[in-house]
């Protein structure tokens, strides 16, 4: 445990050292937030509402989506992908540490700076984008938010395993992020999607990334306890799925001789 705490600390420090570059990257993402806000403002002008969302609610939804979209992304999965690609991971396997826990610790290490960025962007957004509702229930929202990191980590770690079979990490990342964007409700709230897509999204882990925290923030979730339970279930399930997959995949490289 101590070693993973140390890893998290070291990562936090190195992430901090590159804060300038990260800040520029975040500034880029802010333009995405700006574009979607402008689109929804045009759509919901004059008090209109779509799918049960009016403009202030939609703005809050977008901001929560931005925040959850940042959690667990600063420390990129390319660190692991590169380690797999150049065979370094084989060296990790002989060390008395757990690769999955190491990378989870690294993701936790990035969390501090992520929270700082989220706070800054949220502050500016609230100032500029005008009135929006506060969280319906702070505690429930915080609980839901807490599961974003483990779920994202599980999905990321699991898909990064594909690099054991393909050299091309970019393609995997793009495809995964695309699918996640749709099914998490980051592109549009799931409530506006066709019924079949909604039911699919309800049982998949992605909704826990954006939709669940955003709906709980807005008080639009009919049964927040259940949604959080689903998040928790996926967080645990993904952890063990990823573990299982990693064991299988790393056996593959040891057979091939790394």
């Amino acid at each position: 445990m101590k070693v993973y705490l140390a890893i998290a600390r070291v990562t936090a420090r190195s992430v901090l050292a590159y804060r300038g570059a990260y800040a520029l990257g975040i500034a880029g993402s802010c333009f995405q937030l700006l574009a979607t806000t402008a689109l929804w403002t045009a759509l919901l002008a004059g008090g209109a509402s779509i799918g049960g969302f009016d403009l202030p609610e939609m703005k809050a939804y977008l901001l929560v989506g931005f925040a959850t979209g940042l959690i667990g992304t600063l420390v990129g999965d390319w660190v692991l992908a590169n380690r797999i690609r150049d065979g370094q991971v084989a060296l990790d396997l002989v060390k008395p540490i757990d690769t999955q826990k190491v990378f989870f610790a690294q993701n936790c290490g990035g969390l501090g700076l992520e929270i700082v960025f989220i706070a800054v962007v949220s502050g500016v957004f609230v100032l500029l984008a005008g009135p929006m509702p506060g969280p319906a229930d702070g505690w429930l929202f915080a609980a839901s938010l807490a599961f974003v990191l483990p779920i994202r980590f599980g999905i990321t770690f699991l898909t990064t395993m594909l690099v054991f079979w393909t050299e091309n990490h970019h393609g995997v990342v793009w495809a995964r992020d695309g699918v996640a964007a749709v099914l998490s409700g980051a592109i549009v709230p799931l409530a506006m999607m066709p019924g079949w897509l909604q039911s699919a999204a309800a049982v998949l882990p992605f909704a826990g990334l954006t939709s669940t925290p955003a709906l709980i923030y807005l008080g639009k979730a009919p049964n927040p306890g259940l949604l959080i339970a689903i998040q928790a279930g996926w967080a645990v399930a993904l952890w063990y799925l990823a573990r299982f997959a990693f064991r299988g995949a790393s056996r593959q490289i040891t057979i091939h001789g790394g």
């Binding site: 590159y18 300038g20 390319w78």
Partner: peptide, 10 residues
Amino acid sequence: DVDPAEEASR
């Protein structure tokens, strides 16, 4: 002296 957030953000 900046280092890559590069692939992370690309």
